[in-house]
Design a protein around this nucleic acid. Structure first.
Length: 699
DNA sequence: CTTAGGG
DNA sequence: CCCTAAG
């Protein structure tokens, strides 16, 4: 009754079509799903990034210094040429460690070989790559649902799993390194570790019952993640949208974002129903963006069953990074979005888990080279490295070349080992889900904020100001004793850096903070290499998260487009592919540490105009409708924002011009604000008044 | 999820 | 802008 009446009071005679609530709820449901998906999708940011990059690498640098065999074995995580950081040769590989002594770690390089293989078998590289991302993304989509995961408690490396599995007591956990030496575990583990071709990665799943037995390792078949090759995944992306904006290589993504609030997006129609319990996101803006994006992939992935992932325990057990992500959702939330989870607890959670990580130190074993690692050479170093934290790296052994002739030291980091991961999956889990798990775990670690440490002869080189020469890194004989470590970063999350900062640090430049990317929008890194998928991915992420197409589009102002374009076209030519690829990861990770307040985005006059106009017609109190009507395309403006803005506008209109700050709002608008405000206030009063008699009558 | 309001 | 209570 009440609502109906409101409609009758149009401002300036304008009759407002009232949106039926039914529709709204329906749409809610959709957004729910989509949002969920989206959350998960980011999981692949890294995965896709890494994999894609790898592919790229293979493609671009067939003649890289490393030999094929080397590659195959590659425990290589990353190759860094000191001289030219932007070299295309850089790579980040993830691989499981297949040696006993390394059993606790994951090597970032399996993906590599994987990717490699993949690339080889699948001819059209470019296409393949292009497809890969959507694929990855889509995979994620499917994996929603692991809420049940939350049931499992992992405390300080002692995961307790209701199933009665002993997994919990795995000495592999953080606590493991204390009471149980590597050797022990190693021994137990070895049987599963031998004979792996270098192409296969093994993940230790499982558990340790009393002894140190691990369940059968899963073997990656070298095939791309289930869906990654699914070209259909890509279809929705490219197919039907006509971008308003055009970007060199990422139209699809741009599109995804720009189209945002299209309620009719495919995602909505997807039947998939999952009973996830999401915390309502306070902002529809982001939500929607994500929602939409997710929807793009939605169709592609309904394959995995909820059960598949439901009782998964993922434990990033190293050091104190005992953050246990009870489920994918929470994990993502903490990793990538500071806003879709408004609960304060989150902040506490994030804050507390990170700092501790730094304190604990454990020896991970430094592998001088993959080969060495395998041969157990490392042990000595491992011992020395006790004070080194979590992840360590391997410097290319035989292939590392220090060329002092031209005063440049060239090193290649064969791999970075990610501390230790604990993963548990139901037997029915798919390989794809396993991969995702691993990726998540890796993400969790990498995302924790890392810095690079340099180790020489097992000793940590602390003086950042020393030259390589002084340090002794410039001699060939050092190659076997030079190591890098990934260390948790101590620093609190500083304010956003300039987006121009290179996210990559030279390995030798010891502990320097990895550059963070501002959650802030504005600049989109448009890679120069437009065929690179990860670029697109990265960009897509950026777009999404940055809401960079902010202009309001009430009347589809032309400035809107121009704004987008100008911003979007900002390029960072010097940025290497690698760098770009990594950006989103770190960016997100940073955000996970400290939830940052949304950046302030003053309303432009145009926006105010739109707002005023909408309110004039819809009245106050229907902010959602206002949002839909006038700011549907401005993802970053939530109805709460609009409401707030109106509040301030009213206030502004009432104060003297001298007291106003910021971009001056035309008096004309302010007048309208007052008028409209008065009008609607009055209407509300009338309504109330009318209502009174009715209720009285009823009584 | 939306609104409304205080912070 | 954020956070929350209410609906």
């Amino acid at each position: 009754m009440v609502l109906q009446k409101r409609l009758d009071y149009g401002f300036n005679g304008y009759q407002v079509p009232y949106t039926p609530r039914a529709t709204r709820s329906a749409r809610k449901r959709c957004s729910f799903k989509k949002r969920a998906e989206d959350n998960q999708m980011c999981a692949f940011d890294l995965l896709a990034t890494v994999a894609g990059k790898l592919l790229l690498e293979k493609q671009c640098t067939p003649s890289s210094s490393s030999t094929p065999s080397d590659e195959d074995q590659s425990a290589v995580a990353k190759e860094i040429e000191q001289k030219a950081m932007q070299d295309k040769n850089k790579q980040l590989k993830v691989e499981t460690c297949d040696q006993g002594s390394c059993d606790r770690g994951f090597f970032v390089s399996d993906l590599v070989s994987q990717a490699h293989d993949q690339k080889c078998s699948l001819k059209p590289p470019s296409c393949q790559q292009a497809d890969a991302h959507p694929g990855f993304a889509s995979v994620i989509t499917t994996s929603d649902c692991s809420e049940g995961f939350g049931d499992q408690k992992l405390v300080h490396g002692k995961p307790k799993n209701e199933m009665g599995t002993l997994a919990s007591k795995v000495e592999v956990g953080p606590s493991g390194y204390m009471g149980y030496g590597n050797c022990k575990v190693e021994a137990e583990t070895n049987k599963f570790m031998k004979d792996e071709s270098h192409k296969t990665a093994k993940v230790q799943l499982g558990t340790r019952a009393d002894g140190c037995s691990f369940e059968d390792p899963l073997v990656w078949d070298g095939k791309p993640p289930a869906v990654s090759s699914d070209s259909s995944a890509k279809a929705p992306l490219c197919g039907d949208h006509s971008p308003h904006i055009s970007f060199p290589a990422s139209q699809d993504y741009v599109n995804v974002v720009s189209r945002d609030d299209d309620e009719n997006s495919s995602g909505c129609t997807h039947p998939n129903t999952t009973k996830r319990s999401f915390r309502p996101a306070p902002r529809i803006g982001d939500r929607r963006i994500r929602k939409i994006l997710a929807s793009k992939y939605w169709k592609v992935a309904p394959k995995l069953k909820d059960a598949t992932l439901s009782n998964t325990v993922l434990m990033v057990s190293d050091g104190d990074l005992k953050t246990v992500y009870h489920n994918r959702n929470s994990y993502y939330r903490s990793i990538r979005s500071e806003r879709n989870y408004p609960i304060k607890k989150r902040r506490l959670f994030n804050c507390s888990s990170v700092p501790n990580y730094d304190r604990k130190i454990r020896s991970e074993g430094i592998c001088v080279s993959p080969e060495r690692c395998i041969n157990g050479d490392v042990s000595a170093l491992c011992a020395k490295m006790h004070e080194v934290t979590g992840a360590s790296s391997s410097v290319a052994g035989s292939h590392t070349s220090f060329q002092s002739r031209d005063s440049h030291v060239k090193l290649r980091i064969k791999s970075f080992r990610v501390p230790e991961l604990f993963i548990e999956l139901p037997e029915t889990a798919t390989v794809g889900s396993l991969k995702r798990r691993v990726m998540e775990a890796v993400n969790a670690i990498l995302g924790g904020g890392l810095r690079v440490g340099v180790l020489l002869q097992g000793k940590k080189v602390k003086d950042d100001n020393k030259t390589l020469l002084q340090t002794g890194i410039s001699h060939d004989n050092q190659k076997d004793v030079l190591g890098f470590s990934l260390e948790p970063k101590t620093s609190q999350t500083p304010p956003p850096l300039c987006s121009g900062d290179s996210p990559f640090m030279l390995p030798s430049n010891a502990p320097q903070p990895l550059a963070r990317y501002p959650p802030a929008p504005g600049v989109v890194h448009q890679g120069t290499c437009d065929a690179v998928p990860e670029l697109q991915m990265a960009n897509a992420v950026n777009f999404i998260e940055s809401d960079h197409d902010s202009a309001p589009s009430p009347t589809d102002m032309s400035i809107d487009k121009s704004t987008k374009d100008s911003k979007a076209l900002v390029t960072v030519p010097a940025m290497s592919v690698e760098a770009l690829a990594v950006v989103p990861v770190h960016r997100k990770s940073k955000r996970s540490e400290i939830v940052q307040r949304r950046i302030r985005r003053p309303f432009s006059v145009a926006e105010v105009e739109a707002l005023v106009q909408a309110v004039e017609k819809l009245g106050t109190g229907r902010w959602r409708d206002v949002k839909l009507r006038a700011f549907d395309n401005a993802k970053h403006r939530t109805y709460v924002d609009l409401k707030d803005k109106w509040k301030t506008l009213v206030h502004t209109a009432r104060i003297s011009p001298q007291q106003r700050r910021g971009e001056p709002v035309p008096q004309e608008l302010l007048d309208r604000v007052l008028t409209a405000h008065a009008y609607w206030t009055q209407q509300q009063a009338k309504q109330q008044f009318k209502q009174q008699p009715e209720t009285c009558l009823l009584l």
